[in-house]
Structure formats: structure tokens, C-alpha cells
Simulated scan of single mutants.
Amino acid sequence: MTDKPRLASIIFPLGLLMIAMASIQSGASLAKSLFPAVGAQGTTTLRLVFASLILLVILRPWRARLTARSLRTVVIYGIALGGMNFLFYMSLQSIPLGIAVALEFTGPLAVALLSSRKPVDFLWVVLAVIGLILLIPAGQSNASLDVTGVAYALGAGACWALYILFGQKAGADNGIQTAALGVIIAAIFIAPIGVVHAGSALLDASLIPAALGVAILSTALPYSLEMVALTRMPAKTFGMLASLEPVFAAFSGMLFLHEHLSLMQWLAIAAIISASIGATLTSTPGNSQLVPAD
């Protein structure tokens, strides 16, 4: 009978992580439905404002003890988080969700690769480059992507890398309360952009249910589930499974947004996922940081 509890201890965190990834990408699909009303800029603002209110109540960040050094780290972490969300949503205006997530994944992948010096990591670099070459727009074929959208997604990846690096430092000081502080700072950082772009449209009460849904699906629910999953599985296992995020994004795009990818684009996503999984498996214990953060 000992096998059943052992099996349950494996399936439970795995299920939580799968639900978290599905939640994040469902939230991204829902967020895209707000674009016609308030644009990507306004949608980012609504998500971060509502998410910060939710986390303010749940995590009570006022209990954090901040020094001048830790405050500076948290501010950079929050700005990186805000930039990541903003640039990611900007990319969704012109490229499919699955491709945007795959391109964004180059950020945490770069962090994992730069933190290691093993010869096998060259293989993961090659796989990632192959994936990018297959995705980067070429010519005027039907499968080519909008250059601006690609640039936004890669910019979101760069912010994701900063989010990881400074999130580690900030988290070491104040633990999970760092997440709430980061989201609040991100909201303060992005809100002026959303206000300038969308103006009074952000005050439309009819948008509240969708905006609240985005905040819950993309931030509050997956963050909570990931925290529980992380305490019940090895970091490398978590990172390897998290590398499947682009697949969840692609299927979410197909299901909710009717975005269908070409065979070449699926191959590109597969190459980037393989690079992410490989980098995670060969990373040192303290560097398995491919954690979903959209």
C-alpha cells in the first residue's frame, strides 16, 4: 500500500503545476480580449492593479523589512516584472500566443545557460538558435511573423531574465512577500502608460469582471499553485516541466483565440522547449530558474 501515497505525492504537485500553466495561458487569452477596449497598455495596467490588490490582501507585504539595499533590489525586480508583462502583452497584438511565449522563454533560458560552463550546454544554445531562426520573420511567406511583435517578445524575455536575477536577491530578503511588493511596484511603473493610452476607458465598470479574471488567472492563482508545487518537487523537475509553457500557450491560443501555427512554427517551439529542458537538466542545483512568470 505504500505505492499509493508515493504516487499521490508525485501526481499532486504535477497536477498543480499543470493547472498553474493552463491558468496563466488562459489568462493571457482572456487578456487579449480586452485589447480592443483598452489596448495592451491598458490591459497590462488593469491586470497589475487588480493583481496587486489581491496580493496585498493575501500576502500583507507591509510586514516586509526593507533596507536601502533590499528596497533598491525590490524596485528593480518590480520594474522588470512590469516591463515583462507590458512587452509580452504588446507582442500579443501581432503574433500568436504560443510563439510569443516561446520567444519570451529565451530570457530564462539565457540565465540558465550563462550560469553553467558545461560543454553540453553548447547543444542547448544550438537548439535555441535553431528555434529562433525558424521563428524570426523571413521573406513574405504566410508563416512569417511581425518584426515588431517579435522584438516585443524578445524584450519581454530580457525583462524575464532580470526578473529572475533580481527576484532571487529580493526573495532572499523577504521571501514570498517579495511577490506582492514586486507586483505593486510594477503596477505603479506601468499605470501611467496605460492611463495615457486608454484614458477614461480604464474606468469602464464593464471591464472589471474580465480584468479581475486576468489578474486571478495570470497572477494570483498560478503564483499560489506554483509555490505549493515547488515545496513538493525538486527544482530541476519543476524547471523541466515549466519548460512546457509554450505548448500550453500554443494550445490556449488555438482553443480561445483560433490561432493556428504552421508545422515550422511548431518545430521551432519544440526546439526552444528542448533547449529549456536540456539546460534545466544539466544546470547546477541553484540555477534551475525556468519558472513561469507571465
Rank of each mutant, 00 (worst) to 15 (best):
S243Y: 03
P234K: 08
I269Y: 00
L257P: 01
M233Q: 13
K236S: 10
M254H: 03
M233T: 09
H260F: 09
G239M: 02
Q265K: 12
A249H: 02
I273V: 15
G253I: 07
L244Y: 05
M254K: 10
A271V: 04
V247T: 13
L230P: 05
P246F: 02
V247Y: 00
I272C: 10
T231H: 15
A270M: 11
W266D: 15
A268H: 02
A268S: 07
M233S: 06
E259K: 00
R232G: 03
A250T: 08
P246W: 01
M264C: 05
A271W: 00
S274Y: 02
K236P: 00
L230F: 09
A250I: 04
K236Y: 12
K236R: 15
T231A: 15
A270D: 06
A268Q: 07
A229T: 01
A242L: 03
S274F: 02
E259R: 01
G253F: 00
F238G: 02
V228H: 06
S274G: 13
L257C: 01
I273C: 03
L241G: 03
H258M: 07
L257H: 00
A275P: 07
L230Q: 12
L230S: 13
M254C: 08
H258S: 15
A229V: 05
L241V: 10
A275V: 09
V247L: 14
L263K: 09
L241I: 15
M264T: 15
L244G: 03
M254V: 15
M233P: 09
G253E: 13
A242C: 08
A270V: 07
P246E: 14
A229C: 01
I269Q: 11
I269M: 10
P234Y: 05
F256L: 14
A229K: 01
E245K: 05
L263Y: 00
I272P: 03
E245P: 00
H260C: 09
A275I: 10
T231L: 13
A242T: 03
P246M: 12
S243H: 07
M233A: 12
E245Q: 13
L241S: 10
T237L: 13
L257Q: 03
A242E: 01
R232M: 13
L261Y: 00
F256Y: 06
M240N: 06
G239Q: 06
S243W: 02
L267R: 08
L230Y: 04
V247W: 06
A235S: 13
I272N: 13
E245M: 05
F256S: 05
A270C: 08
L263V: 15
G239C: 03
